[in-house]
């Protein structure tokens, strides 16, 4: 029996969500787990943009923040949190669609600076307009509790556990959708662009349109992840939209391997859990983190997941070759 890639992704992600819940000893682990799933969701958007199409964005934290702040602000005007989250995703999609066309004509480092500028502009508005957003000190997010949501369907859990399950479920859904997208005709168009704009165009792909679509999709992923973080933390600051957070999202994608959702998961897991582990290094924390980033990229320039998969495949091939050689001799 062979499973489709979408089903396989669902099973792997769902199993990992359940496994986490089985082994986590305390709310702290659920908290870190929740952050891992939220980051996985945001980075899955980067997989679509960077892994499938090959476009670099250094401004995606801006979309993340749009989702977060929509979810923080709209409930103050009587909008339910769920609707506010959708509005945030729609807002991010709209902005990405509007700005995407002109920006995505650029390539390489020019695209990087343009997306960086876009992210910085969003961050600046959030920091400066204190009457609305509370400024750099941030604002409280109220109006939604994962615990109550699950309670309403008859499941009673601690708050931290409820968030873990909710974010795990959304991340799983996001990963399955991304994998299915990759298998579709749009996904093939994306990969054709990844190899060469010109070749893709000669195959009849509307390059500008496809790039714009990938940009919008990845923006929606970031916005939903931002909304989840705002709700789970109950507090949000403009840092969520800052340059360093954009860099963090790209780093997670590249470190894990931007070509697949498994890379997104591994990258998110490592960079989220690592700071918790690195506290033992105290003063040396940043040096260790920097060295890990540099070392991984030198040794495994396509990321951890492809490198490990390649290693396994090679070993299997070697074993097969060995068996073959023995049989021949």
């Amino acid at each position: 029996m062979t499973l489709g890639p979408g089903t396989r992704t669902f099973l792997v992600f769902a199993a990992l969500v359940v496994l986490g819940a089985l082994v986590f000893p305390s709310s702290f682990f659920y908290r870190v787990g929740t952050l891992v799933w939220i980051n996985t969701l945001a980075v899955t958007g980067m997989v679509v943009l960077l892994g499938y199409v090959g476009l670099v964005s250094l401004g995606h934290a801006g979309f993340f923040a749009i989702g977060a702040y929509a979810t923080a602000l709209l409930p103050q005007y009587g909008v339910p949190s769920g609707l506010a989250m959708l509005a945030g995703a729609a807002g991010a999609a709209l902005l990405a669609a509007l700005i995407g066309r002109p920006i995505l004509k650029l390539s390489g480092y020019y695209l990087a600076i343009a997306t960086l500028g876009l992210g910085m502009l969003i961050w600046m508005v959030l920091s400066k307009e204190a009457w609305l957003t509370g400024g750099p000190d941030g604002m409280t997010v109220t109006g939604f509790s994962a615990r109550n949501l699950l309670k309403s369907v008859g499941i009673t859990l601690k708050t931290a556990e409820a968030w873990y399950w909710l974010c795990g479920a959304v991340a799983t859904l996001g990963a399955v959708l991304a994998v299915n997208l990759g298998q579709s005709s749009a996904g093939r168009a994306f990969r054709a662009i990844h190899d060469s704009d010109v070749a893709a165009a000669s195959l009849g792909v509307d390059v500008a349109r496809a790039k714009s679509a990938a940009f919008v999709i990845s923006a929606v992923y970031a916005a939903v992840a931002g909304a989840l973080l705002a709700l789970a933390n109950g507090y949000i600051t403009p840092d969520a939209g800052g340059f360093m957070h954009s860099v963090e999202l790209v780093t997670m994608a590249v470190l894990g391997g931007a070509a697949s959702v498994y890379g997104a998961l591994v990258g998110a897991l490592i960079l989220t859990a690592l700071p918790q582990v690195l506290t033992v290094f105290a003063e040396y924390e940043h040096m260790v983190l920097g060295a890990i980033m540099v070392g991984t990229m030198i040794a495994m320039r396509r990321g951890l997941v492809p490198a490990l998969a390649g290693l396994l495949a090679r070993r299997r091939a070697a074993r097969r070759a060995g068996r073959l050689a023995r049989r021949v001799s």
Partner: peptide, 18 residues
Amino acid sequence: MTSAKLGAGLSALALLAA
């Protein structure tokens, strides 16, 4: 990443935190 590895990573985390 296999689940065994994830489990091992998590227990390492637990040891550090303990």
